[in-house]
Design a binder for these strands. Structure first.
Lengths: 340, 340
DNA sequence: GACTGGCACTCGACTTGACGGAGTGCCAGG
DNA sequence: CCTGGCACTCCGTCAAGTCGAGTGCCAGTC
């Protein structure tokens, strides 16, 4: 048996009311609050069907109904109309992001903004290095046996590492290295650099090969291995809204998950172009987040994507509003990056 | 009336037992667990006095006693013997910190380690710029109207900012500026740089003054204004240990406080040399942290101090153990920094 | 004078039972 | 297919009662 329009309408009403009130919603209250043109008894029948199909459930006999994860999923996929942001919100976003002075600042402002607007936990990934290109590499001599390697990516990210040289090296040699490295790597996607770096070593004069190899290895680490790991987090305190009712009684597992950068990157990092991804409760692969939902999307200048951002909250979440906000913020950040 | 030795012993026992069990401790249980050579009745009399003096209190009539903030304070000041760390712990610290590749890495490893060892929330301030000296300043031309300013401090910290130039400037001019800037500022304490930067502007050729002034203003921002703001945080999930009993029922205010970098910097940043500071409950100036205790200390190479670190937890905390761990970690980090 | 044993008392935690109400499922009738 | 009615379930709450840990106080002892 398929679900007719009224049943879907009932489901929508249940989701919306439950999200708003945090309480199981019963047939009578539902009929009163909404004007469905039918009686409570009819709604009850519909509810029975919805329950059988797995979209809602009763916490206990003679309580109202609560949406299941599947119910939320159906709601998100077919029932929710995307809320447009209010002009005030748009202005808030613009104003908040406008004053940013550098990439760090942009990311921090964004994550705070997102947390504040959605009243959830917000996560923003720094522009992923693997999607960036090298804008410039700088080698700064610190002493004769140490140089500082600074990599500037076209996305504005800057990474630096200290290199211990195997043999004393004069500033001229460093300058020479710098020139060669830049000639080879500037403009190249970070993901494509390894063979070029290897070539640099191979082409170097034999007596310097040791030194070059040393720099090259640190370079590879910086460019490739440590790449994507940075992100910013804000709004943890929002987890405590709604008592301990959300998250089935304990914030513990959620807080633990939030401490693992790897987990967070998985959550917001796997982005397909211009999609907003919603993971509801059980759909999360991480056990600790089975009671949570994640709304994430990619951002970047124009249509390319250089990183992900998103929010995490209880499954009982205002999906339309959250999705709209996440999308809007991502777009604004993208525009901001495009300006550089 | 002053407190004789036995009363102090009773207080110590109450603190230690309460910390261990999380339950109010009564006279009988106390006499059983410890071998004080006296009867419960005597202990009760002592307790009555301790309560009158404000060191302990009863959650309700006919419950055991619980230390007050003042009680913990007395305990910390006069009753706790510093626990030596176990060799296993020492080894753990060394092993954990050994593999660090750069300053970011050191700080992140430290904060995680601290959270893990103390099972509390850990905070580590990056080496404060205001206490650092300039090791090197690098100006990297990005385009003719943009250069990247990179500042490397002797503590290993690296800060960068993009500078928009008022007029197109060739690479030679940039090199020239770089030489002059370094000649003037290398080795100088960041706090002492402003007049020197001003001098740089004054000494520059009139036709370049505009450009130099522009760089100088960003330089000042980087060196002075934005200085101390960075820190790392870990172990938030530890707040949920011990149920919601700690922190008088709500993590909310604590989580909120942890989101404010300014607050955290105040907590761990105000360090006098080689002191470990303990703030207990009400002693915290921040209202949100009235139910929490903070143990903090400074760290740095040798005897100088370049930053602060510490942990935050419930007033019901193992003070001797925590203090020992915080000190030990600070010393190891200091040693690590001294190696550079 | 300090410590101790004993005793009455207090008060929270827990159990039990009763009750009201919200919400349900089902059924017969429109 | 919808609706009104009815019996039923079961949660939440309140009141009463019990239990036990812990106390304060007092008289007695060393």
């Amino acid at each position: 048996m398929s679900l007719d329009d009224r049943k879907l309408e009932v489901l929508r009403a249940i989701v919306e009311d439950y999200v708003a009130t945090q309480e199981p919603v019963g047939s009578k209250a539902l009929v009163e609050r909404r004007q469905l043109g039918v009686s409570p008894a009819t709604v009850r029948n519909d509810m029975a069907v919805l329950e059988e199909e797995g979209y809602i459930r009763q916490p206990h006999t003679s309580a109202g109904r609560v949406p299941t994860d599947a119910g939320y999923r159906l709601f998100v996929d077919r029932l929710s109309r995307v809320k447009a942001l209010s002009p005030a919100e748009r202005r808030a976003i613009e104003r908040f992001l406008a004053g940013a002075v550098d990439l760090d600042d942009v990311v921090h402002r964004t994550v705070r903004l997102l947390a504040q607007l959605t009243r959830q936990v917000a996560v923003v990934q720094y522009p992923s290095l693997s999607r960036s290109s090298v804008r410039h590499l700088e080698l700064v001599p610190i002493s004769t046996t140490r140089i500082m390697l600074v990599m500037i990516a076209d996305t504005g990210r800057v990474e630096q590492r200290l290199v211990e040289l195997p043999a004393p090296t004069g500033p001229d040699d460093v300058l020479d290295m710098r020139r060669k490295v830049n000639a080879k790597l500037t403009g190249v996607k970070l993901a494509d650099t390894p063979p070029l770096v290897q070539a640099l070593v191979d082409e170097s004069a034999p007596e310097k090969r040791n030194t070059v190899a040393c720099v090259a290895s640190v370079l590879l680490e910086t460019l490739v291995e440590r790449s994507d790991e940075r992100l910013a987090l804000a709004g943890t305190a929002n987890l405590t809204r709604g008592g301990v009712l959300d998250f089935q009684g304990s914030l513990r597992p959620v807080l633990e998950a939030l401490e693992e950068e790897v987990i967070l990157l998985k959550l917001i990092g796997e982005v397909e172009p211009s999609t907003t991804r919603v993971r509801i409760g059980d759909e999360n692969e991480i056990d600790n987040l089975r009671a949570a939902s994640v709304v994430s999307t990619g951002y970047g200048p124009g249509t390319t994507i250089v990183g992900g951002l998103g929010v995490l909250g209880p499954t009982r979440m205002d999906y339309p509003g959250t999705i709209a906000t996440v999308r809007a913020v991502a777009r604004y950040v993208g525009d901001l990056l495009a300006q550089n």
